[in-house]
């Protein structure tokens, strides 16, 4: 009697719980003897990294104006094109698209710092369900506005005010996709974060090299994104226990969005 009742109540509670469980967007499995992708990203173009002029409007209090002018400086090296003498491109996001199964993504939090009127780091990776830690190291007002870049529009993720120096705000990463950061008070500031559910995202180093490991064998599309070049996508086949080589060369530039805000 009691058993039937208990059984019924438990089942009655479980059924709705099960129905709410959505099909997971990314399934974590054990990857043994997975494959890898490795390569170098170059460009065939001759590019020059511009110097961005910084214009601080004067405020009523000249001391405040002085502090802001000193902290931000008069110009900033943009840092769009960091290309080695052998045309290897740094700071390219290498993203494996449409991965449904694989190893677990790390739970590391991403720290982004407002420092000397720049976002540091310029390009970084964050994982869904970890946290963003946004810091302000400058003695001035910054606001950090994060937005995910949809096909042709930007959708706000967070817009946080950081008026104090050494202030830190922690927020959960709930949205996947390519996210850009801007500061409304300083229109030249920008940063890019790729927020991923899976761990198969990386950034090229100073030699344009990248490496992705422990992928389940199969055919993948890899996307190469950089703020100053038109993006490239390439198909690659990953075989168990082997590392596939995938090099790419950017052949077209594009104007980064933040230059339009100046």
């Amino acid at each position: 009697m009691k058993k039937i009742m208990v059984f019924t109540v438990v089942v009655a509670l479980l059924i709705p719980a099960l129905s709410f469980a959505r099909k997971a967007k990314y399934e974590v499995v054990e990857v043994n003897n997975g494959g890898g992708i490795q390569g170098t990203v170059k460009t065939s173009l001759k590019v020059k990294d511009p110097v961005v002029p910084i214009n601080i409007q004067p405020k009523e209090d000249p001391k405040e104006t002085e502090i802001e002018r000193k902290t931000c400086g008069k110009t900033q090296q943009a840092g769009i094109y960091i290309v080695s003498p052998s045309n290897e491109v740094k700071n390219v996001l290498v993203i494996v698209e449409g991965v449904k199964k694989g190893k677990a993504a790390p739970k590391t939090d991403l720290t982004i710092n407002n420092n000397k009127c720049r976002f540091e780091p310029l390009v970084s990776i964050s994982y869904v369900k970890s946290n963003y830690i946004v810091k302000n190291s400058d003695p001035l007002f910054h606001n950090t506005s994060l937005g995910v870049l949809l096909k042709d529009k930007r959708r706000a993720v967070y817009n946080l005010a950081l008026p104090y120096q050494n202030q830190e705000i922690k927020k959960r990463n709930r949205v996947a996709g390519l996210i850009d950061l801007k500061c409304d008070a300083h229109s030249w500031m920008r940063a890019y974060v790729y927020s991923s559910r899976h761990p198969y995202v990386t950034i090229t180093d100073a030699n344009g090299n990248y490496e992705l490991k422990d992928l389940l064998p199969g055919k993948y599309t890899v996307r190469f994104w950089h703020e100053g070049f038109q993006e490239e996508t390439k198909e690659v086949e990953v075989k168990a226990g082997k590392v596939s080589k995938l090099d790419v060369s950017f052949s077209k530039t594009r104007k980064p969005d933040f230059l339009g805000r100046l």
Binding site: E60, R154, A161, A185
Partner: peptide, 28 residues
């Protein structure tokens, strides 16, 4: 004053602060 609201909203709240003329919304 401390939160720097005046940078955008101006000291008298007239929306004429030092940062106010360059502002653009998320869609440009």
């Amino acid at each position: 004053k401390k939160m720097k609201c005046w940078e955008c909203h101006g000291y008298e709240g007239k929306g004429d602060g030092p940062k106010s003329d360059k502002l653009k919304d998320d869609w440009g």
